[in-house]
Each structure stands twice: as structure tokens, then as C-alpha cells.
């Protein structure tokens, strides 16, 4: 429901600031901008998906080092074995703003993405994958951070 409502608004008020590229696109983060401001992992999850109800299974796959020497750039690869997943979101439990990044999955795109993230200190990183039925799958991995990297 919220998504539809947002789309409607998108063509009126938001259109003024949105570019042609973002206009009409819907995503977890554009629909739920409050998730950005969440200061706890559960609040970020609640903000983005409206629930904290997740299933830990092997549908969400999170690749991270066991130990990150530099918290300012921790390599991460996220993927899912689901062929029809809707989106993926990274949440970093111990960051001041846990919500780290989100992807909307599109047809033709192979749902496996790599990037680098900042981690303030040792803690859990979670990957949330929303499947076609709206069910949330989670993978959790603890990363030990030697030098934190959130000052930047």
C-alpha cells in the first residue's frame, strides 16, 4: 500500500526534485526514507520493510572477511539463490546509521553485487533479501574490525 501511495506522490510533489531517472521508480529506500535515520539495526529493518520478522536461511548469501584491518573499506559481496527476489539490503549493527545500502533487483541482472562498506567497530553485518512474496531472508556474519572507519 505504501508503495502505491508513494508512486502517486512521486508524480506530483517529489517530481520537482526528482530527475527523470528516479521518477516513477520505487525502492525500499525511496519508499521509506526514515530507514536512513534509524540508529539501531532493528529500527532500520522496521523502517525499510515494516517488520523485523526475518528467516535465517541459505537464500541470502553474505561474503565478508572474518577480520577487517581497515573498517573504512570492508569488501563485501551479497547474493541470493532466489531467482525472483525483489531487493537486497545491508544492515551493519554497530554503525551509528546501520542501514548501509540497498539494491532493487531488475530483470537480467544477476543478483550478486560487490562493494566496500564502512564499519565503525566489530559486530554483525546482515543481509536481508526480500523474495517475491514479501518474505524476508537473512544472512548474518560477524566481522572483527581492527581499525574503525566511520569518521569520514
Amino acid at each position: 500500500m505504501k508503495r502505491r501511495k508513494f508512486l502517486g506522490l512521486g508524480f506530483t510533489s517529489v517530481a520537482a526534485v526528482a530527475t527523470l531517472q528516479t521518477l516513477g521508480s520505487a525502492s525500499i529506500l525511496s519508499d521509506h526514507p526514515k530507514a536512513y535515520d534509524a540508529t539501531s539495526a532493528d529500527a532500520a529493518l522496521q523502517g525499510a520493510y515494516g517488520t523485523t520478522n526475518v528467516v535465517k536461511d541459505d537464500k541470502a548469501v553474505l561474503k565478508l572477511p572474518d577480520i577487517a584491518e581497515n573498517g573504512a573499506a570492508v569488501p563485501v559481496t551479497v547474493s541470493t539463490s532466489l531467482s525472483n527476489a525483489k531487493n537486497m539490503t545491508i544492515i551493519i549493527d554497530n554503525n551509528p546509521r546501520p542501514l548501509a545500502a540497498s539494491w532493487e533487483l531488475t530483470e537480467g541482472t544477476i543478483p550478486k553485487f560487490s562493494t566496500r562498506i564502512k564499519m565503525r567497530k566489530t559486530g554483525n553485518v546482515r543481509l536481508i533479501v526480500e523474495d517475491a512474496n514479501g518474505k524476508l531472508h537473512e544472512a548474518v556474519k560477524q566481522v572483527k574490525v581492527t581499525v574503525g572507519g566511520c569518521g569520514g
Binding site: S30, Y36, W103, L105, F113, T115, I117, K118, G149
Partner: peptide, 10 residues
């Protein structure tokens, strides 16, 4: 490719 980063991306 449709990514929504935050300031937690390096």
C-alpha cells in the same frame, strides 16, 4: 543495476 547507497559505503 539499481543501488541505493548510504554514507556507510566507502
Amino acid at each position: 543495476y539499481d543501488m541505493y547507497p548510504t554514507s556507510a559505503v566507502s
